[in-house]
């Protein structure tokens, strides 16, 4: 199981993602948290993160900007990013995928939706 960084300014939202990851089989010591994109970039440089699950609407640095920085970074560009946001419709999903999002999931997140996204990601990588 890879190490996962959860990026969301809401402690409640981070807890809900963490809970979904636990149901999907992840251990507590495999999940890391950041409150916004800038903190996430700092953690990505320090920790061995294999997957990022990020919100869009955050202070300091939002999810779109985080995605842009990651996709432009020689060190971070290959790390999969799953966007989990309430702000998801056809247009937003198309835009986020064009920016390099690996998967886009609408909030509220369910364990089934997260497991499906991770499974599709693993299948594509295999």
């Amino acid at each position: 199981m890879p190490n996962v960084l959860i990026v969301d300014d809401s402690a409640t939202a981070r807890m809900l993602v963490r809970r979904c990851l636990t149901i999907c089989g992840y251990r507590a010591d495999q999940t890391f948290e950041a409150e916004h994109g800038r903190a996430a970039l700092d953690q990505l440089k320090a920790e061995g993160i294999d997957l990022v699950i990020s919100d869009l609407n955050m202070p300091v640095m939002d999810g779109r900007t985080l995605l842009r920085f990651m996709r432009g970074s020689p060190r971070l560009h290959a790390i999969p990013v799953i966007i989990v946001s309430s702000l998801v419709n056809e247009a937003a999903e198309e835009e986020l995928r064009a920016m390099g999002a690996t998967a886009v999931i609408r909030k509220p997140l369910s364990p089934a939706a997260l497991a499906a996204a991770i499974s599709r990601m693993d299948g594509a990588a295999a």
Partner: peptide
């Protein structure tokens, strides 16, 4: 927690109004 619930409701409502426009919310 109330912020998060409000954000989820507002985002979903906006996202449904026009599927061809990427929605945007304040904090």
């Amino acid at each position: 927690m109330i912020d998060e619930l409000a954000n989820a409701i507002a985002g979903q409502a906006l996202a449904q109004l026009d599927p061809h426009q990427s929605p945007g919310l304040g904090l």
